[in-house]
Design a protein around this nucleic acid. Structure first.
Lengths: 334, 334
DNA sequence: CTGAAAGCGCTTACAG
DNA sequence: CTGAAAGCGCTTACAG
């Protein structure tokens, strides 16, 4: 393993010059520069970025905190983040929120403080105040996406949750449904709250009553969709349509419906939210709401970059969505 | 942001002692130690690991290279790796192989050299020789899993691919099938090769002929299963069963079968491999081969730890699997 | 355009 | 048990 010192010596220059030749080419005479480059290449020299980071007091690393590293919903977002980050010379460090919580001492504590120049939060399930404290009053650039805090002091990029949900429910109304139930996310989730607002809005617009027994709180998991779907289908007055606040729950509903021999979409219509890959391969393929996840990721990282470059203004961005009509929703049964 | 120097000063000791109190508690007088700890806590001090890494010449970081960061197949393995790594004080850095390839200069080049104490390869799609060169003859501890090179110079942990595939195909035979096709992975894949050996073995055992037209090469993607499934189903003499070398392709077959109105399992039996989460929610639920992914991940990291601790012996570990019988395979149609 | 020197925040022989 | 000092591999004012 060669160091800058080796390169400098072989090139017959000081380490200062070698460093400049490699990192600030135009501050160095062209012939010197080329000599250094040649030697570096010959030796297979590669910089020790820990040393550089230590010296420059920046890690060129972004911490991305996800709710669950196993949930594929986030990957397109991450790819978007990565695309921009890479162009700007930043690397990504992926952190699992559940662990971060538990490991206040080791994980957060360690990473937050110095290893990381900024943070992207894909979850609201972090102790944001401890996060602030940990970073020792040094203001850590933070951007949230996918989830956020109401009245958040951080920039965030979201989708139009309310309108999107309203449009999905409206779609069911247009198919003739008037008994439309909903399975929401956990009450702690802001986006769930907003999507539920959309559900209410659509019903309102159609002058349909809000029925308590048609509003069930899930937790965004397949299992909760399955369980609550059963509750709805076995109730005295089952709905003819269910709007699920995410696809995993919608797929859960599809499964329990199948089990109970409730035909979809002829007897029950189901609409999801997110457009995860699997929804396309469901039986029947899931009608759902598509978010521009890659774009969201890119935008999120760009916002963070802004902050990293000293722009303090906090921004709230909202992307529109699209209803993806497939085969899990149809006309109301007669 | 406080440094060790601040802690030392406030505690009235040298930085050497402060450092020892924090990292090597028993090398320090108990009262001194506690004073240091108290100050550290009061100040919210957290170590700058870049400085430590630079000084100790170790990063306490493991690079995990995956074929595709979006493929959820790998997450349980990663969780297993993480569990052991964390206990041993290591962090994980996730790398996407496609990018690593393309970015020989930035990604690999940078990470391989010093940021990382060891590497876990979940793919064979890396230029292993460049990897060796990049690491500058310093022998980098490497363990492979999920995929490997035949006659690999690295330790690896695998599953019994051949036996597992043979058992799956045997299961189809036992259901009365004799027209059993297979959709394999790419020919460059060692595990695909082994699974195919298992297919051949089972057919052989049952004295069934190997038909060239029943052996199609896919690439482990949903789409290839879909496409090749169509080829098989529309052929003159379609098989009554298809063994797919992974679940994504099996689900592709399920979908095209549905489209072509081929009933599963009454007209066509399908068996997959891997037991990805989605297979359980398919219609019908997928019969497949279950690998102990979490255990595999743990074992892999343990092997790497061995090497990190100086144990040079290379080991090849093989885990058994289990056939998960669900509803995508049934008796041969009469 | 180039170099000597200081310093980023740690750890660790070496003395005492 | 404790401290002074060197050093990990860089970068960057400061001089020249």
């Amino acid at each position: 393993m060669y160091t800058l010192k080796d390169v400098a010596k072989q090139a017959g220059v000081s380490t200062a010059t070698a460093s400049r030749a490699l990192s600030n080419p135009d501050k160095v005479n062209v012939v010197t520069r080329e000599k250094v480059h040649a030697v570096a290449k010959k030796l297979g020299y590669s910089i020790n970025i820990m040393a550089r980071s230590l010296r420059k007091q920046e890690s060129k690393t972004i911490l991305v905190i996800l709710p669950d590293i196993g949930d594929s919903f986030f990957y397109e977002i991450i790819h978007g983040i990565e695309a921009i980050a890479h162009k700007a010379g930043y690397s990504l460090l992926l952190g699992d929120a559940r662990k971060s919580q538990a490991r206040t001492s080791s994980f957060m504590d360690l990473f937050i403080s110095r290893q990381v120049d900024g943070i992207i939060l894909l979850t609201a399930e972090v102790d944001i105040s401890s996060l602030a404290t940990q970073s020792g009053n040094r203001e850590m650039p933070i951007v949230m996406t996918s989830e956020y805090f109401p009245g958040s002091p951080y920039s965030d990029v979201q989708i139009e949750n309310e309108q999107s949900a309203a449009r999905a429910v409206q779609y069911l109304c247009n198919l003739g449904h008037s008994s439309i139930a909903t399975i929401t996310g956990p009450s702690s989730s802001t986006i769930s709250f907003e999507r539920h607002l959309g559900y209410q809005l659509a019903l309102n617009r159609m002058q349909l009553p809000l029925r308590e027994d048609y509003i069930l709180e899930g937790n965004f998991s397949f299992q909760s969709g399955y369980d609550l779907g059963r509750t709805l289908l076995l109730s005295e007055d089952p709905p003819t349509a269910i709007f699920c606040q995410n696809d995993a729950m919608a797929i859960g509903v599809l499964n329990i419906a199948k089990e109970l021999n409730v035909a979809i979409p002829s007897q029950l219509s189901v609409v999801g939210f997110d457009n995860i890959q699997f929804g396309e391969y469901c039986e029947p393929a899931l009608t759902t709401v598509q978010q521009p996840r890659y774009e969201i990721g890119k935008r999120t990282m760009n916002l963070l970059l802004d902050q990293l470059h000293g722009n303090k203004a906090i921004q709230h961005i909202s992307f529109p969505t699209q209803l993806v009509v497939r085969h899990s929703a149809g006309p109301v049964p007669i």
